[in-house]
Simulated scan of single mutants.
Amino acid sequence: MADRKSGAGDTVVIKKYANRRLYNTATSAYVTLEDLARMVREGVDFVVYDAKTNDDLTRQILTQIIFEEESRGEALLPVQFLRQLIGFYGGQMQGVLPSYLEMSLDAFTRQQEQMRGQFSKAFGAAPGAGLLDEAVKRNMAMFAEAMKIWPGFNAAGAGRPAAAPPPEQAAADPLDEMRRQMDQMRAQLDSLSGKKGG
Rank of each mutant, 00 (worst) to 15 (best):
W150K: 03
E168P: 02
R110I: 14
D133V: 05
I149D: 06
E113S: 14
E177R: 11
P161Q: 01
E68K: 00
M140H: 05
P78Q: 04
G117F: 14
A107C: 00
L101G: 00
S120M: 15
A144P: 00
Q84V: 10
P166K: 07
R116G: 07
L97R: 00
L97Q: 07
I65Q: 01
Q169M: 12
G128E: 11
N154L: 05
A146E: 13
D176Q: 10
M115P: 00
V47F: 02
T63N: 05
L57E: 05
F81A: 06
E168D: 12
D106Y: 15
A107E: 04
A126W: 12
I86C: 13
P161R: 03
V136I: 12
K137V: 10
P127D: 08
G124K: 07
A75I: 13
I61S: 01
S99R: 15
A125R: 15
I65R: 02
E145W: 03
L175A: 13
A144N: 09
R160C: 08
G130R: 11
A75S: 10
S71C: 03
R59V: 04
S120R: 14
E177V: 08
I66C: 05
A156L: 05
G87A: 11
K52Q: 07
R83V: 14
Q80G: 05
R180G: 08
Q94N: 10
G91N: 11
A75K: 10
R160P: 05
L62P: 01
M142R: 09
A146C: 13
E74L: 08
A171H: 01
K121C: 00
T58Y: 01
P167A: 08
K121G: 02
K121E: 13
M147Q: 12
T63L: 11
M142A: 14
Q94H: 08
